[in-house]
Design a protein around this nucleic acid. Structure first.
Lengths: 202, 202
DNA sequence: GTCTATACTCTGATAGAC
DNA sequence: GTCTATCAGAGTATAGAC
C-alpha cells in the first residue's frame, strides 16, 4: 500500500479499502475482481493499482487490519472481574461488532471457509495463544464454582458462532424473521438470556 | 444436467457433482472455475460441459440437492414427543450432518455470504414456512412449561449457528483445539450440555 | 462420449501519454 | 496522480473430428 502523503491519497486509499471490504466480503478472494473494486471505489483500475501493487495487497491490508479488531474484545476479559458479567460483556461487545462491522465478519468467514490460506499462521499463533490464556481464566472460574462446568474452548467457540451468525447469515436471519424485526437487538437480548442460563452455577 | 442413461454417464455425473461440491464450497460460485472442477472430476472441460450445459447448471444442481438434506432434520421434530429430547435429537442430527457433510454446509454458508442470490426464494418461502411451523410447536411447549421461555426463532438460529460452526470454521476449530482433539465428538457432548441447560424449565 | 482446437470475454497487471 | 491503451493469461463456452 502506498503511504498516504496527501489528502487525496488518504481519501483514495480509504475508498479502495472500503470497496475491497465490500467486494471481498461478498465473493471471497478469488471471486472478487479488481474491476469491481475499482468501480465501487470510483477509480479506474490502473489508478487503483497505483495505490496498491496487486489484488493480493488490497486483500492482505484488509486482513491485517481485521485481526486486531477481531481479537480485541476477547483480550478485554478481566480475570479479576465478576465472571458471569465479564463473559456477558464480551458477548455484548461481539454482538455490537457483528452489527457495526458485518462486512469484516463476512470477510473473516470467507477466509476461513477457503481454508484460511492467508491467516492460518495468525490462527495457529496469536489466536490460539489468546484462547488458551482466556481458557485458563475460565477454567479457574469453573474450579472456584463461580460459573458452571463446561469445556472452556467450546464455550468461546459458541460465543463466536452465535454472535457472528447474525452478521454472516444476515440475509437468512432477516428473511426468516421478517421485516418488522431488529435482528441485532433481539440477538443481544436472547444471547444474554442464553449465556446467563448456561453460565450461572447450579 | 444430462439425464444419466449408461453406467459411464452415471459415474461421470456423480464425479462432476462431487468435484463441484469440493470447489464451490471452498471458493464460492465466482471463485470456482470449470478448469478446476474438471480436473478434480478427472475429465476434460469440454467433457464436463457435455454433462452440464454451464457452470451455473452444476451449481444449481448442487443447491437443489442441498436444500432437501438441509431442511430434513428440522422437519422431523415431533410435536408429540418429549420436548427437550426432541430438540436435543435435532441438535445431534445437525452435528452429525456437520461432521458427515461439511462441504454441503460450507456451500450453503458461501451462498448466504454472497447474499443468497440463488436461494433467496427458497429461504423466504419453504424455509421460512417450516421455521414458523416449528416455532409454533416450540411456543406451545413453552406455554405448557415443558421447556424454558425464549424467542423460538432465535432458538432455532442458535442450533444452526452452533452446529454449522464446526463444519464451516473447521480449520479454525482444529487449529485452536490442537491435533489431539475430536471436534465433532466434543461438539456433540458440549451442545447436549448447553441445550439441556438452556431448555430445562426452571 | 470424449477429445483437440478455438472463439471470445474477462482479469490482473503494465506502459506511457498527459 | 490519473487516464487510455494494451498485454498475457485465465475463464466460459462451442465446433467439429474421431
Amino acid at each position: 500500500m502506498l503511504k498516504p502523503r496527501t489528502r487525496i491519497q488518504e481519501r483514495n486509499s480509504k475508498a479502495i479499502l472500503e470497496a475491497g471490504l465490500d467486494v471481498f466480503s461478498q465473493h471471497g478472494f478469488r471471486g472478487a475482481t479488481l474491476d469491481q473494486i475499482a468501480e465501487v471505489a470510483g477509480l479506474s483500475k490502473p489508478n487503483l493499482l497505483y495505490y496498491f501493487p496487486s489484488k493480493d495487497a488490497v486483500y492482505l491490508a484488509l486482513l491485517a487490519q481485521l485481526m486486531q479488531t477481531w481479537l480485541d474484545p476477547l483480550r478485554h476479559i478481566n480475570p479479576k472481574g465478576e465472571p458471569v458479567e465479564e463473559i456477558l460483556a464480551y458477548v455484548h461487545r461481539k454482538v455490537e461488532l457483528a452489527r457495526d462491522y458485518p462486512r469484516e465478519s463476512r470477510l473473516f468467514a470467507n477466509e476461513i471457509l477457503q481454508g484460511a490460506p492467508r491467516m492460518l499462521t495468525e490462527i495457529e499463533g496469536p489466536l490460539k495463544t489468546l484462547v488458551e490464556e482466556k481458557s485458563m481464566i475460565l477454567r479457574r472460574w469453573m474450579a472456584e464454582g463461580r460459573i458452571a462446568q463446561m469445556p472452556p474452548v467450546h464455550l468461546i467457540f459458541s460465543i463466536w458462532a452465535l454472535t457472528q451468525h447474525y452478521a454472516d447469515f444476515d440475509v437468512q436471519v432477516r428473511a426468516v424473521l421478517g421485516k418488522t424485526h431488529d435482528p441485532f437487538a433481539e440477538a443481544g437480548e436472547y444471547l444474554d438470556l442464553l449465556f446467563r442460563r448456561l453460565l450461572t452455577p447450579p
